[in-house]
Design a protein around this nucleic acid. Structure first.
Lengths: 362, 362
DNA sequence: TCAAGAGATTCAAACGTTTGAATAAGGACG
DNA sequence: CGTCCTTATTCAAACGTTTGAATCTCTTGA
């Protein structure tokens, strides 16, 4: 009974129980017509399909239906812990409608990116979700996708100006949240490690930090503001944090807290401070951003700004499905922007400023 | 010129330059016959394909060729940092032969696992690579795959007894490596946190630990041996480590080092010890296993046992491709086992035993 | 008795490729 | 002039589904 292809087909089932391929198809795909099929026939066909271990061929089906039932999820760098919760959200959104996520990791390599983009196009993904943890300037990479009228949604970056629906955390609010936390703990001399210039997040978080400082009438010493170089690999944030912690100490300028661009940078700062005998949080507080696993399991646990990544992933998948359905109905879904509200997660790396008088909260 | 499907087909190209679909297909797929096609024709067709932005339809092609050109990568829990380097290795192996990895994350949920397995079968993956970071006992889940004669390779677990090619780190050697390191640093009173009973790794690492102890004539105090409960979520290792650190301290039994089942457990131990004012590594050394990112960026960095994950992933993809080719040629590739050599990564969490006399190495 | 409808099932074309076999147009040779 | 190679191109069937239209067999009502 082994077919040459090694897979059971409708024809096998049809022959095995004496009906035509059409009838079998109608029953197994639960087409509207199947209510006209005699109940006994239905049962017989279903049983045979089960016995033979039939699985419909997605290729034949998609070819005929002209729907691939799949959505590409293109991560720029899956090794960034930031990505996984987003992927989980996407999976959760795709599961109920039986869409397959085509998850690929470009590993920040242009060559891989192109190659996977081609595969995605060939596999006729009905939509593309891009997870841009940190992303090159080159955004025209997706032109090919747009040309084929495939809806795109991007997570982690705002591309609404290019008419692409985007979901990201409200970086300005997050920066302010982190800064306000330090200020409320009594810190006044706060060192800042800004993100790399190439990232959009950098300016927004910085704006939030400045706003919070201004609101509390706290001055930021420009000599205590550092900027990470452009990213070269996934641990360059850590190395940058380590490096700048040493610079801060060498500068001899007093500071009691460090606001780092992200969690890995914060962990690098902690390492740097520790090496010089500065204890966190007793002598100096450190705050991060992103709430990734390493920040949670380090000791001290890093106080950080949490992004609702899973929710963002879920919403991204919903938007993509809506865009697909809209296109199906000849209409068009305009690009949307979702600015997720960040949340402060207080752990052990921040404490009341040692020299500061206890402040009475209003 | 917009097709109803929204995608350019061979027919479009054929019409546009006045040749038949066959000729176009022969040229673009670089079939053997294409050397018979006039050079001018070839060029003309290629140009038109480029201009129209043609991408061959993988569904039609696979249907006809009876090859899906894709391999499923089924991760039990992608949020385990352990998985990503393996995936990178697999991608590296699949890239040159133009296979698409169908990467899915079962999130340790039976329901998801089943659902994705069905999708994989429907998409006619030619092979399946399972990444079993930590895995249920239920191994018959893959029966359905085997029934369809799809080759399976598993990473992170030995299933050669079920005739499945397996790649994993030599856990026994790794356990011995970690233990020997502590012993060489002069530690004699070493607490051990064993892994969960349900994991095969647990017994093997434990055997290695015991061997190293025996070889050095060091006794392991059974009262200082703990066992992690079965895993419920991805941070339960951390929580277990934290919990047992407190138990060790409460037991009042002296110990100068802790050998933890994996890195997250080690990080939990560090947190627990720190909470009681025990400094790592000054008062107590801690060693982990796996070499995941959080272990590297924590302070102190965790001394650990590295697994060559990327190489294992690469080899897994090669084995899978070999098995596919073998099946193509009507032959059969017998199940193989690869025991990767672990490597000790010395960081900052281990130090010479405070009370021990300096030992002269031979 | 016949037309009309309902119920159950099948026909046949289509989706976009690939590929073995067929065709057509040119020589070269006996 | 017919035969036999090349060279260049096309035919047509097939892959496994889906689905609008068609067929066949009953029943029902006039």
């Amino acid at each position: 009974m082994q077919r040459k292809s090694g897979h059971v087909t409708l024809l096998d089932i049809a022959r095995a129980c004496g009906y035509s391929v059409s009838t079998v198809s109608i029953v197994l795909s639960e087409a509207p017509l199947s209510q006209n099929v005699a109940a006994t026939t239905r049962e017989q066909i279903r049983k045979m399909a089960r016995d033979l271990g039939y699985h419909p061929d997605a290729y034949a089906r998609s070819l005929r239906r002209r729907r691939s039932q799949s959505i590409a999820v293109l991560a720029y760098d899956l090794s960034d812990p930031f990505c996984i919760p987003i992927v989980h959200g996407i999976q959760a959104g795709l599961q109920p409608v039986n869409y397959m996520p085509l998850l690929v990791d470009a590993q920040t390599q242009r060559k891989l990116f192109d190659s996977y983009l081609r595969m995605i196009l060939e596999r006729r993904a009905e939509g593309v979700i891009v997870i841009a943890s940190w992303i090159f300037q080159e955004t025209n990479l997706l032109d090919d996708v747009e040309k084929n009228q495939v809806p795109i949604v991007i997570v982690g970056r705002d591309l609404t100006n290019r008419n692409v629906s985007s979901l990201l955390v409200d970086n300005e609010a997050g920066g302010a949240l982190a800064m306000r936390h330090l200020i409320e703990l009594g810190h006044r001399r706060i060192a800042i490690v800004r993100g790399p210039q190439e990232l959009f997040d950098t300016e927004l978080r910085w704006a939030g930090v400045q706003r919070a400082a201004a609101e509390a009438a706290v001055k930021i010493d420009p000599k205590l503001v550092y900027q990470l170089p452009n990213i070269t690999n996934s641990t360059s944030g850590f190395e940058g944090g380590f490096h700048f912690a040493n610079e801060m100490l060498a500068s001899k300028r007093p500071f009691t807290a460090v606001l780092a661009f992200d969690d890995l940078t914060a962990l690098g700062v902690v390492r740097g401070l520790n090496g010089a005998g500065v204890r966190v949080p007793d002598d100096c507080s450190v705050v991060g951003f992103d709430d990734v696993l390493p920040a949670a399991v380090a000791t001290p646990g890093i106080t950080t700004v949490h992004q609702p990544l899973k929710e963002m992933g879920l919403l991204a998948s919903e938007w993509t499905l809506q865009a697909i359905n809209a296109r199906e109905g000849q209409s068009h879904k305009p690009a949307q922007l979702y600015n997720a509200s960040p949340e402060l997660i207080v752990r052990m790396s921040t404490a009341r400023c040692p020299s500061a008088p206890r402040k009475i909260r209003p």
